Simulated assay, not measured.
Amino acid sequence: MRRTSHEMSTETLSIFFVADGVRLEWQSWLLASSLACAHDGRGDVRLYAYASEGYLPEVHAATRDLYEVCGVELRPLPDTPNWRGDYPHGNKLVAASDRRDGARAIFLDTDMVCAKPLTPMADLPADTVAAAPEGLPTWGKENDRWERAYAHFGLPLPKERLRLLRGRKLEYLPYFNAGFVCFPERPMTHDGKRFADHWLETALDFDHNCAIGNKRPWLDQITLPLTLARFGYATEVLGETWNYSLTRRKDYSQTPDVEILHYHRAAFLEQAPQWPAILEDFWARMPKHHHDHAHACLTEMGLTL
């Protein structure tokens, strides 16, 4: 990255997540407060939360008030596309397709907290998508699935390999964890479409028209590298600090200084050395008249408070 996280970008960086449902809403409290903490005073960063039109009336006052404190704009999800079957994970692609200000955007899974500024992502080249490798080969390790997936779009199997981040850290075809994806917001191709349009279009085509098994819940992660290859996007392969999985680590005292902690389950988050400061900042941002409600919800989520 060419500048430090303390220098101001001339372009707006949009950071967004989906809080469509009660538990996602609770998780979003920690994510929103941690994003606000990491980007305090940054006029070049915009924060967005998305919920479906049907769920928006159910969003709790505590959430709305915290979002206001944190500078998070709550928006309705665009209309759900015609997936072949139910696919809640597809909400990230739907949210990504919304129109926001700025040159770049970052999607974050809601079961994450931000520990350092994400502003270095604003310096990536305009044609570049950034993501960290998946931990394990959760799809396509057996038989010829990847070959058939690329062939569906008339593409050869890529020659490049990346190193997965967990287990035996296999050398593997391009395969990324879609919990953190940074992408250009402006059209980069002759068709006038943006990366998010291409990703959603690719996922829908693959979902309906490629006769291949076990697509769910991996459809977003399968079609991410397919989209990059179809439309010629460059790839920035991120290190694990940008999407650091806390799941079943042997020694949490060795947790590195990271940008993003991806905790999956609340019990893993509590083991991270960064957790006490993150929790303290959350309570400082959540309006005090909501503390009892927030305590009850976070306890039900699995945190020991």
Results as ranks from 00 to 15, higher is better:
W283Y: 12
A294S: 11
H291K: 10
H152Y: 15
T255I: 05
G302Y: 02
K92V: 05
T189H: 13
D86A: 12
K159P: 00
G140D: 09
H293K: 09
V72G: 03
A284P: 06
A103G: 07
P276K: 06
A272E: 09
L204P: 06
L162V: 15
V94Q: 08
H289T: 07
L298W: 09
L305S: 06
M1G: 14
R216T: 09
W29C: 06
R2T: 15
L162E: 05
D191Q: 07
T4H: 13
T119L: 14
R104P: 01
P120G: 09
D144Q: 14
L238C: 13
V181G: 00
L224W: 03
P256R: 04
M8T: 15
D79S: 11
E142M: 09
E300V: 05
P120W: 06
D20C: 07
H289G: 02
R166V: 00
P117K: 06
F153T: 01
W29P: 04
G90A: 08
V18D: 01
L298I: 10
G102S: 08
W26T: 13
H208M: 09
Y172V: 05
D292W: 00
A234I: 00
T119D: 13
T227M: 09
R99M: 11
F206C: 03
G154H: 11
P158W: 07
P88D: 08
Q271E: 15
H60G: 07
T223G: 02
Y175G: 03
R216C: 07
R265Q: 14
L279I: 05
V45K: 02
D109T: 10
E185P: 00
Y233F: 12
D197Q: 04
E53L: 10
R216M: 08
P78G: 02
D111S: 14
G239S: 15
D207E: 08
L226M: 09
T110R: 05
Q271L: 13
F206N: 01
H190F: 08
C37D: 13
L77A: 11
E58P: 00
E160N: 10
R2Y: 12
L228P: 04
H295M: 10
G213V: 09
S9L: 06
S245T: 08
A229H: 12
P174Y: 05
E185I: 00
E240W: 02
H152L: 07
R104H: 05
A61R: 13
W199K: 08
D220R: 00
R230T: 06
A196F: 02
H6T: 15
A266V: 05
A115C: 15
T202W: 06
G43T: 11
T138K: 14
T241K: 13
P156A: 15
W146C: 05
C182H: 03
E147A: 15
R249V: 02
W26Y: 14
E11A: 11
A266T: 06
D109C: 12
F180I: 09
F153G: 00
H264I: 13
E73P: 00
R84I: 06
F176P: 03
A51V: 13
D191T: 10
T4A: 12
F176Q: 01
M121S: 03
R100S: 02
R3D: 04
M121G: 01
H6V: 15
